[in-house]
Simulated scan of single mutants.
Amino acid sequence: MTVKVVLLEDEELVRSGIRMILESAGDVEVVAEDTNGARAVELTDRFRPDVVLTDVQMPKVDGIEVVRRLATHPAAPAVVVLTTFDVDEYVYAALRHGAAGFLLKDTPPRELVNAVRIAARGEAMLSPKITKRLLTDFASGGGSARAKARLAELTPREHDVAVHIGQGLSNAEIARALVVSESTVKVHIGHIMAKLDAANRTQVALVVHDAGLS
């Protein structure tokens, strides 16, 4: 299956480089691109991408606004935010608003392609290199009690699955760890997202982190 990507990046050299990397994979196609997020909804309506890869800082409409606009779209794609900085409060805000994850612009080509594939599957896509730093620096300490109270609404097995999501495990890895099928894991994740009112796995991971469990 080909992963369709809309690429939003204001720097032409960076944009062309990312497009070349993605399309060299063979199973990823950049179906549209633009220099800012003003047409994000229009491009999503027209091309029905699996992933929108967007720079966080762009003129007119930035990456955070792209996340906000697409979060409620009927055919909402996974939105992955690109950033130049190791720790970026804008990226954290994007995650809070429903982004599937983020990448550094200097991410190695193979990791970039793999990250897009992961996001297209609906799984959390957080750069291992900086996830811990970003969450530690920007997560609200005062949210710990609230996060624990929200997790208390889960069943014991759902709680286990949520913790594994917070640790960055894929569905397959969670299934192996809990000795259940991937389909069972997907059912649990659906229940977890509903109970936590989470738009995606990344928001589940943030609740787990805020509770001090990752």
Rank of each mutant, 00 (worst) to 15 (best):
R39K: 15
K4T: 09
K148S: 13
R68E: 14
H188S: 04
V116D: 11
V161R: 06
F47I: 00
F47A: 05
A94R: 08
A162K: 04
S24I: 08
I118R: 15
H191Q: 13
G141Y: 11
E158K: 05
R157D: 12
Y92D: 08
V113L: 10
E158R: 03
S24K: 12
G37N: 02
I64F: 10
L213P: 00
I21S: 02
P74C: 01
E123W: 06
L154W: 00
L43G: 06
M58D: 07
R133E: 15
Q167A: 13
V6C: 02
D210P: 09
G37S: 06
A162E: 07
A172R: 14
V5R: 06
N200F: 07
I192S: 02
V91F: 03
A162H: 06
S170A: 07
K195G: 05
D197G: 13
L82Y: 02
G37C: 01
L104D: 04
G17F: 03
E12W: 14
T155E: 07
D62P: 05
L8G: 12
G190E: 03
S127A: 14
A194G: 08
S214A: 14
E33Q: 11
V30C: 10
V52A: 01
V56I: 15
E11G: 13
V28E: 07
D210E: 15
V31P: 07
L43T: 07
V185P: 07
P59S: 01
P77G: 01
H164F: 12
N200E: 08
V91D: 05
A120I: 02
H73W: 00
A71Y: 11
T107I: 15
E158D: 10
P109S: 12
V41P: 07
K4L: 12
A71I: 09
R117I: 05
A172L: 09
P59L: 08
D10A: 08
A115T: 14
H209M: 07
G63Y: 06
R201D: 14
L104R: 11
V66C: 03
E11C: 14
L206K: 07
R157G: 03
G98S: 11
K132S: 12
V79Y: 00
L22I: 05
L82W: 00
I118D: 12
E29W: 08
R96Q: 13
P74V: 02
L82N: 04
L70T: 04
P109I: 04
E65L: 09
A99L: 00
L112T: 04
R117G: 09
I165P: 09
A38E: 12
T131G: 11
A38T: 11
I130N: 14
A40T: 09
E173C: 00
V28L: 03
H73R: 00
D160V: 08
H188C: 07
H164Y: 13
E33R: 03
G143A: 14
A172H: 13
A149S: 10
T72K: 11
I189H: 01
I21N: 03
L53F: 00
A211N: 06
L134Y: 09
V163R: 14
H164D: 12
Q203T: 01
L53R: 08
V14G: 09
V61H: 04
T107Q: 04
H209I: 02
G122S: 10
V91E: 00
R110G: 09
V208S: 03
G122M: 01
H159S: 13
V28A: 00
H191P: 10
L134Q: 13
S214P: 11
A139E: 10
A152E: 08
D86Y: 10
H164G: 09
E9T: 10
V208I: 03
R48Q: 15
E153R: 15
T83L: 05
V87H: 04
